[in-house]
Amino acid sequence: MPGLLEIHNLSKSFDTTKVINDFSMEVTEGTLCCLVGPNGAGKTTTMDLITGRIKPTSGKIVFANEDITAKHEHIIARSGIGRKFQVPAVLRDMTVRQNLEVAYSRQTNPFWNLFKFRVAGLKQKLDEIATLAGLTGRLNDRAGILSHGETQWLEIGMVLMQEPRLLLMDEPIAGMTEGEIEKTVRIFRDLRKTATLVVVEHDMGFVREIADEVVVMHMGSLLAQGTIQQIEGNARVREVYLGEQEAA
C-alpha cells in the first residue's frame, strides 16, 4: 500500500550548501510519524519543501497519489495538508474567533466569498475546536495578547479547522507546561484516528508517548526509520543524536 505522503530522493541546495541531500521517506495513512534529528538536520526545511514554501532542487513529493512537487502553497494546502509553524504563526491583530473562522477554508474562491456572510457548519466546528483547544473563554480576545502556550493551541486549532488529511506540526509543544503537554498527547492520539500526522519534535519523552514511527534525519539525509524501540536501539542514532542529547 503506498503511503499518503511519499518523498523521493529530495534534495535542496542553497548556493553550494546541501541542506537536504537525497532524502526519502514515506508516511502511512492513519499513523503519527515523528521527525527528529539534531539542529540543522533539515527538519523544518523538509516541511517547507512539502508545503511549497521553498522549491526543491531535485526530487519528488507525492501526496495522496498526486505529485505536489513545487506547487504553490495554497494549492498544496487545498489538497489537504495543514501546517503548524515552528514559531507560532497566528493572525495577531485579529480575534481568536476570527483566526479560527479564516482557517475554516472550505471555500477559497475570492468571488464566491464576496457573497458569503454566513458559513455553513462553521459555528459547530468552531465550538468544537475552541473547546478542544481550551480557548472558549478567549474567543473575543485579540490573538496577539495570548500567552505562548495559548498561541500554540490557537495555531493547532487553526490547522484542525482546515480539516486536513495530513497535519504537519513543527515543534507543537515548545513553551507548553507539563499539563498542556499531557493534553497535547491526548489530542494527538485522538487525531490519529481520523488523520495522518507528521510531528517535528526534540522532546524524546513526548515522541515516545505519541509516535507510531520515528524518522531520524541527520545532515539532510535519512539516518534511520522505525518504531521508537528500534530507533532507541540504533547505535548510529545514539551516536549522532540521542547520545549527545543525554550528555547535555
Partner: peptide, 20 residues
C-alpha cells in the same frame, strides 16, 4: 468572508497562503 480573508492577509499574508 472575503473581507475576513483580506484582513487576515493584511495581518500575515504568508500564513494565509498555508490555509489554502
Amino acid at each position: 468572508s472575503f473581507g475576513l480573508v483580506t484582513q487576515a492577509i493584511r495581518d500575515d499574508s504568508e500564513r494565509v497562503r498555508f490555509l489554502g
